[in-house]
Design a protein around this nucleic acid. Structure first.
Lengths: 106, 106
DNA sequence: TTGTTAATTCTAGTAATATCGAAATAACGC
DNA sequence: GCGTTATTTCGATATTACTAGAATTAACAA
């Protein structure tokens, strides 16, 4: 994952309302959740919700599927995994970062 | 980690410049890196850099230590681990989310 | 105190984001 | 087509973020 893409996804998740939306969708699992149901659950204006969903959509964190008049939203687990891999990998969280320079031996 | 805190940290990382700053600090390891060195490395105005560092600082992602006139910045691995745990845990990426409702049995 | 280096705060302009009501569009049943 | 339900787009406003030059503060040496 490119740095700019990772940043865009982190930014998308870095809004409380959107993080709640995303979590609700993850909890909904494969069934997903309709936009209308999300609106009731999160108690937010429809237009605001639509705006946030678009943000999550364009960075790929969620996807949508139409079922007649209803839009089902689902979280993209795969992409989140990629994002976490980026953070762990590029930011080497798990282990003590051995400095690249050879003078560090301790 | 509370949702609002997680969102604030994700937002802090969700800016390309700040993500670069953070990565540079992680790569610097325990030695850390001075503000001045970061400025040269990232080629950004000192005031802009200071502004971004403050953002990372207030959400706890980095820490600073004074060495005479120089300020050494370091990444907080622990907090990043907590953030990743939040994403993995709360957003159950690894496994298929079993819905809480009892009617879902399949 | 004066001077030097390092970093921050102040100030300001520009751009982006969040919010929501109202109007418009989409899919459908009749 | 008409009406109904579901969702988005439009328009408008308020807030916040990004950027950077100039002035200021911090730590120190002489």
């Amino acid at each position: 994952m490119k740095l700019d893409d990772a940043a865009a996804r982190l930014e998308a998740l870095g809004n409380p309302t959107r993080l709640k939306i995303y979590r609700a969708l993850v909890k909904a699992g494969d069934n997903g959740m309709s936009v209308g149901r999300l609106q009731v659950r999160l108690d937010v204006a429809a237009s605001t919700l639509s705006h946030h969903l678009k943000t999550l959509l364009v960075v790929g964190l969620i996807s949508q599927e139409r079922q007649a008049t209803t839009l089902i939203c689902r979280a993209n687990y795969g992409l989140m995994q990629g994002l976490i891999e980026f953070l762990v990998d590029e930011c080497c969280v798990e282990t003590v970062c051995t400095p690249v320079s050879s003078k560090a031996a301790g």
